[in-house]
Simulated assay, not measured.
Amino acid sequence: MNAKTDLKLRDRDVELRWGARGTARATIAAGLVFENISHAYDGNTSVENLSLEVPPGEVLCLLGHSGCGKTTLMRIAAGVEQQVSGRVLINAQEVSGPNVFLPPEKRGVGLMFQDYALFPHMTILDNVTFGLRALDRASARDEGLALLERVGLNGYADDYPHALSGGEQQRVALARAIAPRPSVLLMDEPFSGLDRRLRDNVRDETMTILRETRATCIMVTHDPEEAMRMGDKIALMRRGRLVQHGTSSELYSNPENVFAAKFFSELNELEGVVTGAGIETAIGTLPAEGWEKGAHVTVCVRPHGLLPESPGAKPAIGRIANMRFVGEMDLLTIIVEGHHQTLHARMRPGSGLAAGMDVALETDPQDVLIFAAENAH
């Protein structure tokens, strides 16, 4: 058995690291604008009056549950789908609108699909050079080999996709997408098919290559952690609409509503009423700065912002129904009288608390979010 065959029998996605293998060639990034985009499938709205701007060189993550319209919006940018109304502009040039529709190959856009969509009858090198038809054969081969070297697969140029693992196929798909040096790169859940052990390494290396190419990038994902790690900005979508657009810090710290807040963190939700003393809730009175007396609100407390403690100066409010050690944290489930749902807290081990104990509850103000009840969702 030769060394190459032996390597293929192992988990190469773990053994092989991309490392520094040259630099991907830079492109000229383009700005991308969605202007009042609406789209429907068989009369069912998939995107509704959505406007969004992506500056040149920015990595934008389209985030949301399955069916929220994020992939449809990406396909509209690519020219694979055509909107019902609105316009798409690339570098201030209208590429799709009421009177204009440029096909995908005329837009300077690169596509990387969720299933990688490699051609099974073509070698790895031929897959990578597929979009380099403007170059002569020798130049295209040189370009393709350089890209394969950059993603750590230069030894597999003459193999076929079926011989590669999932992580290696993802690298080939990335190399093929950036080969024509697109001004805008569109990626549809590019890491969803990878084992969790590989995902972090592949994501980090992909980001390095994206920065090297300097292309504007839209990445579709349903994973909030991935969006926060990858995106300069995040566009959170729901039912075809844009819920919130901003940096990961902005969306986490200042969500527009409970839906946005719950996308980035587990939450304890409580009803509250603003009184002269503050916001009255099942876990006590919280500060009511900025809220009018009599207002009904939804109070959200992140689990690590709910602070159980042995009763002392403060009376017991709840009882620990369950407590589990999970390594760096203890997970607590707490029952509170007058609140129909259990509350969840995360604490460092060594608190001295245990299941069955009565506890007082404090909150960390930076982990408390308050929304008007009628606009919470």
Rank of each mutant, 00 (worst) to 15 (best):
R176Q: 05
R141E: 14
R181D: 06
R199Q: 14
R87N: 12
E289D: 14
G144S: 04
L331S: 12
I335W: 02
D364S: 11
C217W: 10
N268G: 05
F130A: 05
P182G: 08
F325R: 13
A215P: 11
S248K: 03
A321P: 03
F325I: 09
A26D: 14
A235G: 14
G152R: 00
N127H: 11
A277L: 09
R21I: 01
Q366S: 15
Y116R: 03
A92M: 04
S310F: 04
A92S: 14
I178R: 01
V273Y: 06
V258C: 02
G131T: 01
V301G: 11
D158Y: 01
V59P: 04
R196E: 15
H339E: 10
T5P: 05
L32I: 06
A355S: 13
N257T: 02
H162W: 03
A288V: 09
I178F: 00
V84D: 15
T281Y: 01
S248E: 06
A26V: 03
V54T: 07
R17P: 13
L286M: 03
G86Y: 12
I334R: 02
S192T: 00
P287N: 10
A179V: 00
M74H: 05
V243D: 10
R211K: 15
S351K: 00
H377F: 11
L361I: 01
E205T: 12
G290A: 12
D136Q: 08
A179Y: 04
R197S: 13
